[in-house]
């Protein structure tokens, strides 16, 4: 009789322990959101702000914690490495980063991956192991470059093509991919020449290099700038170059100066890369990686804007971001 009572008490005791243990574990698991680190190579400007806003929106949707870091100088590799080491030590689940350098960030990010941290690379790549399942790239802008060039040739008549493609750094994957995509289409056109120059990030310097390039080859009739700085420099240069409206200009980013230049006919096209979507989708991809799901290739969203379509409902939504 006593033995049976002892068994009953023991069973109840075990049931209670299992129950409260399960509840505790579940509640702890439910209360612990994913911790994601978002490291930008640069802050300020429409492109980067929009990317941050996208991340914020996704953070709200998914109830995860996102720590924001950014370097003032886009080439500040050492600060990015510090951020990586710090967040890895803090136990972040995933790092979403726009690396400053293709190869200098390889080692710290590899260490991060080895310590179980997932890595998503935005806009720029780093030299990662191809087989790594812990990392993911969202950098392929080839389609945007190709679409931009096809748009130009479908709506404009050229007797010849002499294009200048202006980027900041050849080591920035996305810029390089944009230029490559654009060039791929040019190569298929008859009488087409193109030149790709990488000019750094200082607007005056870029402007000077564009003017000098034009002075060297005054037959340049297409100039395509692939980021906000080169675009601003191009606008400045176009106002200084007496080209007789013979240059068809394409700028990137929906900065106010680009929009105003489009409306005042200084530039002809704006390529708007949807950096908001890039940031937004990167958080979803990060969560998928953390949860061990396979992340499918995510195409980068973009819009091609000209003066005719800039106020069309769908285009104005992409061009003029709501406050």
């Amino acid at each position: 009789m006593k033995k049976r009572k002892l068994y009953i008490v023991l069973i109840i005791f075990i049931v209670l322990i299992v129950f409260f243990g399960t509840v505790k574990v579940l509640s702890e698991r439910a209360e612990k959101p994913y911790n994601i680190t978002f490291i930008r190579m640069k802050e300020g400007g429409q492109f980067w702000s929009s990317m941050r806003n996208g991340v914020r929106e996704a953070r709200t949707d998914n109830h995860c914690i996102v720590d924001f870091y950014s370097t003032v100088n886009a080439a500040d590799v050492s600060t990015q490495i510090d951020y990586i080491n710090k967040t890895v030590n803090n136990g972040t689940d995933c790092i979403v980063i726009t690396p400053c350098s293709y190869y200098l960030l390889q080692k710290p990010l590899k260490i991060a991956e080895e310590s179980g941290v997932k890595v998503i690379s935005l806009f720029n790549e780093y030299d990662k192991d191809e087989e790594s399942s812990a990392s993911f790239y969202m950098t392929d802008l080839h389609p945007a470059g190709r679409a931009m060039a096809e748009e130009l040739f479908s709506n404009n008549k050229f007797s010849y093509i002499n294009a200048l493609i202006v980027g900041s750094f050849a080591t920035l994957s996305s810029e390089r991919y944009l230029a490559e995509g654009f060039s791929e289409v040019l190569k298929n056109e008859p009488n087409a020449n193109f030149k790709v120059i990488y000019t750094g990030r200082k607007i005056d310097s870029i402007c000077t290099q564009i003017i000098n390039s034009y002075k060297i080859d005054s037959k340049i009739n297409i100039i395509f700038t692939v980021n906000a700085e080169t675009s601003e420099a191009l606008i400045k240069a176009l106002q200084m170059i007496d080209s007789g409206n013979n240059i068809l200009s394409v700028v990137s980013s929906n900065s106010l100066i680009n929009i105003e230049s489009l409306e005042t006919n200084i530039v002809d096209y704006i390529l708007v890369i949807n950096s908001f979507a890039m940031g937004y989708q990167s958080i979803y991809a990060a969560i998928d990686l953390i949860e061990g799901k396979k992340v499918e290739n995510i195409s980068v969203d973009f819009s091609i804007v000209n003066k005719k379509n800039m106020f069309e409902p769908d285009i104005q939504k992409r061009l003029f971001l709501m406050p």
Binding site: N53, G54, E57, N274, F276, A277, Y280, Q281, D301, K317, R318, L321, M322
Partner: peptide, 10 residues
């Protein structure tokens, strides 16, 4: 409330 997401196709 998700106007920006809608505008930007998300």
């Amino acid at each position: 409330p998700k106007q920006t997401l809608i505008n930007l196709g998300q």
